[in-house]
Design a binder for these strands. Sequence first.
DNA 1: TTAAATTATATCGTATGCGACATATATTTG
DNA 2: CAAATATATGTCGCATACGATATAATTTAA
Lengths: 151, 151
Amino acid sequence: MDKYDPLLLKNQLCFPTYAAANKIIRRYQPLLKKLDLTYTQYVVMMVMWEKEVVNEKDLVNRLYLQANTLNPLLKKLKEKEYLSINKDKEDKRNLIIALTSKGRDLKEKAIDVPLSLAQEPWLTVEEAKEYRRLLYKIINEGKEIENENCD
Amino acid sequence: MDKYDPLLLKNQLCFPTYAAANKIIRRYQPLLKKLDLTYTQYVVMMVMWEKEVVNEKDLVNRLYLQANTLNPLLKKLKEKEYLSINKDKEDKRNLIIALTSKGRDLKEKAIDVPLSLAQEPWLTVEEAKEYRRLLYKIINEGKEIENENCD
DNA sequence: TTAAATTATATCGTATGCGACATATATTTG
DNA sequence: CAAATATATGTCGCATACGATATAATTTAA
């Protein structure tokens, strides 16, 4: 009706996405505190638990973040001895990030986090499936869907 | 299969929500720069364009944020003269936030933002509707849905 | 009716997240 | 092969976002 309708919060897709991300992350924080991880550190560790060794560019692509966000964060995870950082000898531009044994041990404690949050009354199984599909459609917009996270 | 499956990035709902929020906000930033607004400042202004006058607690509830996030942000918007901040004389704990004429003028420029982003190949109309429903289900989890943003 | 509890903001410290730019290494090209 | 380009990471400054805690004003209750 009104030409300003597109400016109403309730007509936005971005705003509830932003609010949902804030809300879910807030919910994670107290659980992650027991692992001495922040939410962003946790998603990095999830990649590491799965891959064991990656380079920084891999992480940037997998996490849809920027190198300058990950860079200081990786150093913190190194200080916590959850991972190691070394230059690639083949191509000295690359940083090779590898899980340490201490980082691997953390995986055992971490499984409680998704299990405990799965109890939350977020969405039904069907809704969650559709929700994930729509999210990856947004995330991968403009690109070929070559992302293995979206299956 | 594996007991660690819940820790895989691809099995998470939180991660793609987080990634989608980051991605969409990155897309907004250059457009909002023309309005001298950040994304968070923009969502505050959307409330102000709709309501003209609110108090800080209203904003916190509407935006699903904390007062300590909004507080410095409101001061910046005041410095930009997009809104005014005054104590409520009835109840001096309350802050009354009001749109200024300069803030109202900005609304005219701002309508280009959602119109221009609507061109993006995000989701179909049907998908967007379902996506929004699922987001508000997450956001309002555990509460009665008394939120007028979710209709 | 004043002391306790509640409510609404404010302040502080930490950790992102981004754009802009700089640096180091590798690759391509003339 | 030397110069230009491209690629991967690093640095800086700014703006959130949060939990923890403090303060000010109001309401409740003993």
